[in-house]
Amino acid sequence: MTTQHQHLVYGHATAHDCLAFADAGTATEEAAEIRALAAARTWGEARQVRMTHLWNPAGPDYHDPEDGYADDKPFDVTGVGAVADGRWPRMVTERAFTVLPQDLQDRYGKRQVTVHDGDYLEIPVAGEGELVAELRERGYEVTRDDALINQLGGSRLGSLAS
């Protein structure tokens, strides 16, 4: 058994009604990027949102001003194709595949396949205590933050604009 020195944030992901885990080192900054895009009032503002951890689905590579997305045109993040299709931000429940040890994924989770969005790891809330205890035994720092987890998954994205 290897010892980790990683800080994870986790919480109840309401979209899939299960636990989700993310790297705490970048989670807050990623959530800030999601909120910044959601807060943009025009397409020009949306295009200017700088993304360090995520890609900008309203960026000039995806929505050219000459195609009806003028800088002064009102912006609604929920109307962006990648957001409406569920491709941005990516499912927070898929992150467990990269942040949790494989043996714990196998023991506590079940791979779920979606038609359009890829796979995610369904970790029942009932296993929270045991899973968190095992992670801590292995040297992980684990913090629960339901609001942050759901922001990372794009939950209530339209309401972040207000």
Rank of each mutant, 00 (worst) to 15 (best):
T114R: 09
E130P: 00
A13R: 00
R50G: 07
V132L: 10
A32Q: 15
A31I: 04
T114L: 07
G118W: 04
D17T: 09
R90L: 02
D71C: 10
A24Q: 15
R87S: 03
L54H: 04
L135A: 07
E66S: 14
G68T: 07
H5T: 07
S155R: 15
E122N: 13
A133P: 02
D67N: 13
S162Y: 03
E33A: 13
D72W: 08
H7V: 06
D85Y: 01
E30A: 13
T93Q: 15
V83W: 05
R107M: 03
L37N: 02
Q112F: 05
G118R: 06
A22L: 03
V49M: 06
G81L: 14
R35E: 11
A96W: 00
P65Y: 07
Q151L: 14
R95G: 00
R111W: 03
T26E: 11
V92D: 01
V80A: 06
W43T: 04
P57M: 09
A147M: 05
H5R: 07
W55K: 07
V99T: 13
E141C: 01
G44Q: 09
T114Y: 05
A20V: 04
V115K: 12
A46Y: 01
V49W: 08
H5C: 02
L121N: 07
V9N: 12
H12L: 09
E66I: 07
C18R: 00
A82F: 14
H63I: 02
R87Y: 08
P124G: 04
M91W: 00
G153R: 01
G86Y: 01
G127W: 06
R95E: 08
A27V: 06
S162A: 10
G109P: 02
V83C: 03
Q4C: 09
L152G: 00
A126Y: 02
D67Y: 13
L19M: 15
P60F: 07
R50T: 13
A36S: 15
L157A: 04
I34Y: 06
D61K: 13
L121P: 12
A58E: 07
G153W: 03
G79W: 05
E130Y: 00
R136C: 06
H53A: 03
R111M: 06
W88I: 02
G59F: 01
P60Y: 13
R111K: 14
T93D: 15
H53T: 01
G44R: 09
A27R: 02
L157W: 03
R111P: 12
F97Y: 13
R144T: 13
V115N: 05
F97L: 12
E134S: 06
A133Y: 04
D103V: 11
G118L: 11
R41L: 11
G118K: 08
A36T: 11
A38V: 05
